[in-house]
């Protein structure tokens, strides 16, 4: 049987602090991401969605549970395997872009390849293809300070995709963008990426997803699916908003 699960999260828990200050950010969460899926993670602040993403990105270690990428347990990785995983198996898009301000757009995009000993010259074709998709051809020789926020985030997205990762992890990628730039970015992402897992607050951005997991208090709360062929993002948006309002407790939680 073909295993089309790119990412599997099994019984994942994360606890911060000890004793009275103990906070359970994630409580035994399990889910998987299939190849080609555009998964959204939504939830109120403090629900644990960023902790979840950071666990998968190996930025923090979970307290218990397993994370498997293409069947391999990422917690068992050595330091060099972890570096390899960060640079090649996943692509990461940050809310604040995190471009190196002393490298040009082209150098920023090529950085993950260079870090793993691949000459960026050999990937020139791929860089140009991504620049075309993300409409950043003219930004390639520029430094980040010479770009707009939207351009920076598209360069960052191209960087996340350059090493052809198994999955792209995005942490509030539209958080620092205006609505027009957010829309352009989401369109580009859904075109260029194969498998994405995106944490977001933004219902507009989430409407580009094919599935959304809603998390509250560290647990799965709800799941929405969309068939991209039959349901337009605008209809999906309406459904997301309903769940979000339910998750807030509707009117019952209002004091």
């Amino acid at each position: 049987m073909k295993n089309d699960k790119v990412l599997e999260v099994l019984e994942l828990s994360k606890t911060f602090g000890e004793g009275e200050s103990k906070t359970e950010a994630l409580r035994s969460i399990s889910f998987s991401v299939a190849e080609g899926e555009f998964l959204g993670i939504m939830g109120p602040s403090g629900s644990g969605k960023t902790t979840l993403l950071n666990c998968i990105a190996t930025m923090i270690r979970p307290s218990s549970g397993k994370i498997l990428l293409k069947g391999r347990d990422i917690q068992a990785f050595s330091e060099s395997e972890t570096a390899e995983y960060r640079g090649r198996d996943i692509g990461f898009i940050f809310q604040e872009f995190e471009l190196l301000d002393n490298l040009t757009g082209r150098e920023n995009i090529a950085l993950p390849l260079a870090l793993h000993g691949i000459s960026p010259q050999s990937a020139e074709g791929e860089i140009m293809r991504l620049a075309e998709v993300f409409d950043i051809k003219t930004e390639l020789p520029k430094f980040p300070t010479e770009m707009s926020g939207g351009q920076k985030q598209r360069v960052a997205a191209a960087r996340a995709l350059i090493s052809n990762p198994a999955i792209v992890l995005a942490d509030e990628p539209t958080g620092a963008l205006d609505s027009q730039n957010a829309k352009t970015l989401m369109k580009c992402l859904s075109l260029a990426c194969n498998t994405v897992m995106m944490v977001t607050h933004d219902a507009n951005a989430a409407s580009y997803c094919s599935r959304i997991l809603f998390i509250r208090d560290g647990k799965l709360f709800h799941e929405l699916r969309r068939n991209p062929e039959t349901e337009a993002p605008s209809d999906f948006y309406a459904r997301i908003v309903v769940v979000l309002s339910q998750m807030g407790g509707g009117a019952t939680n209002v004091l």
């Binding site: 190196l100 002393n102 490298l103 040009t104 082209r106 150098e107 090529a110 950085l111 390849l113 260079a114 870090l115 000993g117 691949i118 000459s119 960026p120 010259q121």
Partner: peptide, 18 residues
């Protein structure tokens, strides 16, 4: 080097340039 240095060589040069 055609922006073609591997590892952190481009990054190092840019740091020094800065």
């Amino acid at each position: 080097s055609g922006e073609g240095g591997t590892g952190l060589s481009v990054f190092n040069s840019r740091q020094l340039q800065e």
